[in-house]
Design a protein around this nucleic acid. Sequence first.
DNA 1: AACGATACGGAGCACTGTTCCGTTTGGCAA
DNA 2: TTGCCAAACGGAACAGTGCTCCGTATCGTT
Lengths: 188, 188
Amino acid sequence: MGEEGTKSKRADARRNEKTLLDAAAAVFVTSGVEAPVRDIAAKAGVGMGTIYRHFPTRADLIIAVYRHQVDACAEAGPRLLESSETPYEALRRWIDLFVDFLVTKHGLAAVLQSDNAGFETLHTYFLDTLLPVCARLLEAAAKAGEIRSDLEALEVMRGVGNLCIGADSDPRYNARRMVGVLVAGLKT
Amino acid sequence: MGEEGTKSKRADARRNEKTLLDAAAAVFVTSGVEAPVRDIAAKAGVGMGTIYRHFPTRADLIIAVYRHQVDACAEAGPRLLESSETPYEALRRWIDLFVDFLVTKHGLAAVLQSDNAGFETLHTYFLDTLLPVCARLLEAAAKAGEIRSDLEALEVMRGVGNLCIGADSDPRYNARRMVGVLVAGLKT
DNA sequence: AACGATACGGAGCACTGTTCCGTTTGGCAA
DNA sequence: TTGCCAAACGGAACAGTGCTCCGTATCGTT
């Protein structure tokens, strides 16, 4: 439950972890989350072994880099439910938040749904964190009779995530707008 | 405009092209469209050189394998527009056709939107073939006042394609249903 | 039958993920 | 302060894959 940084690790290990996180964040911005591991290691000035020791899979690294933002998104759910006029409005706003996060992370949406081995962890993390929040919002909106009630939260999450794929590589495609259409389609 | 198969090619070349197409189709079914080129070559019983001579990029091979089905989908558009009660109904049915095609092709939807180099050709082919059809259906439905008129055909196509990604690798995700929601969201 | 164009096969190169192990270093105990 | 060793590091090496290149085999024509 606590912070990882205070663990009984050696000082250089802690330092390298931080360095790697910063380097990864920087490389993700410029080259996307699928950037070669070597690039990240080079940017951080460490060897290949170091990166794999700290983050056994690429998913672990991605999770570590974005954990704060994902958690923030999860925490925003209940808050929106309270502060919004209607549950549907809360759902809409929350999905906007999620979409804003995704479309600004080069290639993240794609890798999230990718069935390539090694990314299940990432998929699982997102689902574990955000699915309950989404489910709660959907349930509230359904109970209020604002949206259809035959939809699983998983489907909505994946649908929204999928719509964000490639949003940054083709200016003609506006993911936010299509998500808007999808969310409109949820209404009864 | 005519058939390629009748070109002035050597007999063995024509034979290999057919063999490769069949092998590729078989491998795509079992291993997805991202299957290693070596696997396809092995299945066809030819060398690497042969496959690349006939299909310079993987996209060319994929296009060749699915050309007939894509063309059939394109041709179904105008027919549906005539035979359906309303333009919106035609649009809905046409999108169903497109989705049925995509979800039964392991990994095709993903590679269609992938920004990996080498697949632009594939993306372009699909767009060139299907975009005009989709645009016509959208326009008809918009003119009839059944759907919003501020949407580009490209967005709708990409949105639908995106929703189909991973449809076959997670039984909990029903792409058809989410596309249904999206299409419902198009209504005015 | 001979010959030239066409096509073939697969070794080889480039690139990337991942592992493995010899070397270095941080922190603790004497 | 010094010595020790577990912890951590670096990067060479291996494996999988896309793609090229060129010596060899085959086709079809003369």
